[in-house]
Nucleic acid binder design. Structure first.
Length: 270
DNA sequence: CTAGGGATCAGCT
DNA sequence: GCTGATCCCTAGC
């Protein structure tokens, strides 16, 4: 009775508009069973993307090699690489030909915390093998000291919170990279799977779902397609869209100097 | 706050 | 082919 592992999500559960699927994914579990072991994350924050009609979607300008999985059947993982160093994972919704997806933004690690911790540690990013614990232990000790000797729990808890807080961290904790682009989340023999919400939560109550504008999106900022569980510490901080000012070439000496308000930010917020 | 870094793609030639 | 702008971000000041 304890495990309470629910079944894999049926494909037709995901074969719906992403705006409907997204809130239903909160509380569901994404798990990756790799050679290193199993890590599972209970989803706490997601965003819906609507494909062809959504300027914020990778699929807005049609099918490409990169986004091809989104145009396939529902229930597969769309994994993409961004900012030169990060992966993000989406759940594909809707039937083939219609591209829509739910970006998985954050979650709580509920199984395999040790492995997730290792993947998120600096040592592992330098390519250390999983059994090389030396560097990590030193790092942990230092972090615990910095966090305050009185409460070793507190530092542990805050690190646990950050393990899958944010879309790229979530991928890192789960060991998701481009090799899993297209993986079937609904197949029992898949290494990347999506399980339903446990029928009974420990507290016995349903969490309240809040909504708001998506993070970092400039067009399509008018819709509240970000969904998260109220009170969840793993939900990433809201960050309004900020566009980097264009890197200008040095002005000719004859041109008058521009006002100090070059950074762009000061034009926001009115 | 900023640097960091690689892939992608529209728009060129 | 090439170039430059962009990207749903994170770690570390």
């Amino acid at each position: 009775m304890e495990p309470d592992l629910t079944d894999l999500l049926p494909r037709d559960f995901l074969d719906r508009p992403s705006t409907e699927v997204a809130p239903d994914l909160l509380g569901c579990v994404l798990e990756h069973e790799s050679a290193e072991g199993l890590v599972a994350v209970t989803l706490t924050e997601v965003e819906a993307y609507a494909g062809a009609v959504d300027p914020a979607s990778h699929a807005y300008r049609g099918r490409t090699t990169r986004n091809a999985v989104m145009f396939g059947p529902a229930g597969h993982a769309y994994v993409y690489f961004t900012y030169g160093m990060h992966f993000c994972v989406n759940v594909v919704c809707m039937p083939p030909g219609t591209a829509s997806a739910v970006l998985l933004r954050a979650g709580k690690v509920t199984a395999g915390e040790e492995l997730a911790q290792h993947r998120r540690s600096p040592a592992s990013q330098r390519g250390a093998p999983p059994d090389d614990r030396g560097a990590r232990s030193l790092g942990d000790e230092r972090r615990e000291k910095r966090a305050g000797s009185g409460a070793p729990e507190a530092s542990g808890a805050s690190r646990a919170r950050d393990l899958a807080r944010g879309p790229a961290r979530l991928c890192q904790a789960l060991g998701i990279d481009r090799a899993l682009d297209g993986a079937d989340l609904c197949a029992p023999d898949s290494r990347l799977r999506l399980r339903g919400r446990a029928s009974t939560t420990r507290s016995g109550e349903k969490s309240l779902i809040l909504t708001g504008p998506r993070v970092g999106v400039r067009e399509g900022a008018d819709v509240s397609w970000r969904f998260w569980l109220d009170g969840e510490p793993t939900v990433s901080a809201f960050r309004p869209y900020y566009r980097k000012p264009p890197t200008r070439k040095p002005l000719p000496a004859t041109t008058s100097r521009v006002a100090p308000c070059e950074r762009g930010r000061c034009h926001r917020g009115t």
